[in-house]
Design a protein around this nucleic acid. Structure first.
Lengths: 333, 333
DNA sequence: GGCCATGTTCGAATCGGTTCGATTGGTGAA
DNA sequence: TTCACCAATCGAACCGATTCGAACATGGCC
């Protein structure tokens, strides 16, 4: 009545020993039906819930997974999380989420907190400027880890998107429509992801004989995309198409065009990346590169489970292709 | 070299006993400088990180907080989470987040998981249809809990928004502009929050002699808002203003108006709720009711800390006022 | 030299489970 | 009656930390 119920409380209530209660509740060992029933009834009347941290301590098994992401407010990430959680919860794991907001100091504090509090595995979008010692910390504690989106280490499992292939597809789509002046919006801080996406864009341009292209800086949100598009258009009015680093940027760019009196898809073509829910609803609906976030999430969960089950298996790197979804923001120039 | 470093490993490395290492690292007891240095150096070279679950087991203190939210993909919620995490991390707590997606079965599994895995406190947006037994579970385990947004129990601390006051303000704003046919968009499933917001709307209407008003159903996202506005306009073309239950709905409604050839703020006025980032950037920028999510987050953290420190303190209920931000989607009819 | 005060360090118990080997009681066969 | 065997249950050690009181060494004083 005073404190929380423990194995001891249940054991006394049922008139058996502590190990017996433990065996009944976990279904191990040979227990007669009579005592099993007695124990189960006692556990129920006392509202007994086992203390996982005590269990984890002895058995070494830890059914709690950490998910460290760089931007919780991005709806694409939220959907990936759903996919991960669905699969891991079905396997009896608890997934707890932290948001680094791409701050590597906060990230290192959070990862250390995960280690202190004991996690059995980690899914992680490393912050842009993650120092080596952060990777060392994880290695020192032998924490099964899968990186997501940003593949920064050859010694860790990874799940990501074929970024270069995707932007190449988007760029080729615009070339085939007849565009000749195509800019890339969403970039210059050199994330690995951005580097790959820009590489795909540039490779396709130069294969088409269009030179190096124009890279224009923008953060990954609507407001930044809007401002970047305005300045791009002011500086390079000859540009008739932009490949955007993300849907948020692309939607911002469309707003900018509309404010300038231009029609996205007629005067200037725009492609996005992610296929977030808003992309389909926007006016006009956004042409974009789609990757199923749920598929990514399930893959992440699967790779992590495999790693937990066999810590010595070879490193796994999975890259998922994005698919071009043509809507109304792209057209002939 | 093989397993994780423990107090024992560090003790052997430094040539002292386990309690000594513990005392050095937590700063308790009187330790000579000489051994302190030796211990600290050993801890550093071994990358020692204390195991919180072992510590929590002995000391009873649990510095891990659970945050159970109903919709992770809502950017407003993401900002609230930032506020909570900032304050609690500074106090040495780890905040882990789960998303119920308003599914009460998933919610009950998640809360039980939090109890099993041991949390020292809980911030919680209860799912719409939360059964009593879920509340009983928390009470049975004496888990310090603060509800957020949805105040469903008189026996739990709460932090929320003055919903009725806010929609009353929005409705009065529209009345003062001269609107006479004002609908409420985002309704009818009877969440407490919605009930309060609708009550504020209806009270203001009837005080202004406008009758009961029109309540139109919509979920809390852009696409739903768009479709709801289309059907509302088809059914009730006389409506010249809509009070929306949230910004996402309001933005969807504006899109719907634009598709119909109407101008938000001129032909039909629209107010939102939350002041999410997109509200300021949209074309036209959205008139909305703003509550500082960061302020809400810090309040939540503070109330929870107070509860943890004094479990017997009287129940605290804090409601924060929303502020009208007039932008371009409201005007004279 | 013996004794106490002071400051450091360590032994042992504890938290709530799990695990394994040992013990108990009952049954059937020799 | 004795013995072997099997199923059911329990004792005790352990996981990694914390906590408290006891032990120890040192030095000062009588």
């Amino acid at each position: 009545m005073s404190g929380k119920p423990t194995l001891g409380t249940v054991a006394k209530e049922a008139g058996v020993s502590i190990p017996t209660v433990s065996q009944v509740l976990r279904g191990t060992g040979r227990i007669s039906e009579k005592t099993r029933d007695r124990v189960l009834k006692a556990a129920k009347t006392l509202h007994y819930v086992p203390d996982q941290k005590a269990a984890a301590m002895r058995s070494g098994e830890n059914r709690e997974i950490g998910f460290v992401i760089n931007q919780l407010s991005n709806p694409f990430n939220a959907e990936v999380i759903s996919g991960v959680v669905d699969l891991l919860e079905a396997e009896g794991y608890l997934v707890s989420i932290l948001d680094t907001r791409d701050d590597s100091d906060r990230q290192s504090r959070q990862l250390e907190a995960f280690i202190r509090h004991g996690r059995g595995g980690l899914i992680w979008v490393p912050a842009v400027e993650t120092p080596n010692e952060t990777f060392d910390l994880l290695a020192a504690h032998k924490l099964p880890t899968v990186t997501f989106l940003r593949n920064m280490r050859k010694d860790l499992d990874h799940v990501g998107i074929r970024n270069a292939e995707a932007t190449a597809t988007a760029t080729r789509h615009l070339l085939e429509l007849g565009h000749r002046k195509i800019a890339y919006l969403g970039g210059t801080d050199m994330t690995l992801v951005r580097r790959d996406r820009i590489a795909g864009y540039q490779k396709t341009l130069s294969e088409g004989g269009m030179g190096a292209g124009i890279i224009w800086d923008s953060e990954d949100n609507r407001l930044a995309g809007l401002e970047a598009m305005l300045s791009l258009h002011r500086t390079h009015p000859e540009v008739t198409a932009v490949v955007c680093n993300g849907d948020m940027v692309a939607l911002g760019a469309c707003l900018a065009l509309q404010r300038t009196g231009l029609v996205p898809g007629k005067d200037v073509s725009v492609t996005g990346f992610d296929n977030i829910q808003d992309a389909a609803v926007a006016t006009p609906p956004l042409t974009t590169m789609a990757v199923s976030p749920h598929k990514l999430g399930r893959k992440l969960a699967q790779v992590l489970l495999d790693r937990i089950r066999d810590p010595d298996a070879p490193i796994s790197v999975s890259e998922i292709s994005a698919e071009l979804i043509v809507r109304d923001t792209t057209g002939t120039p």
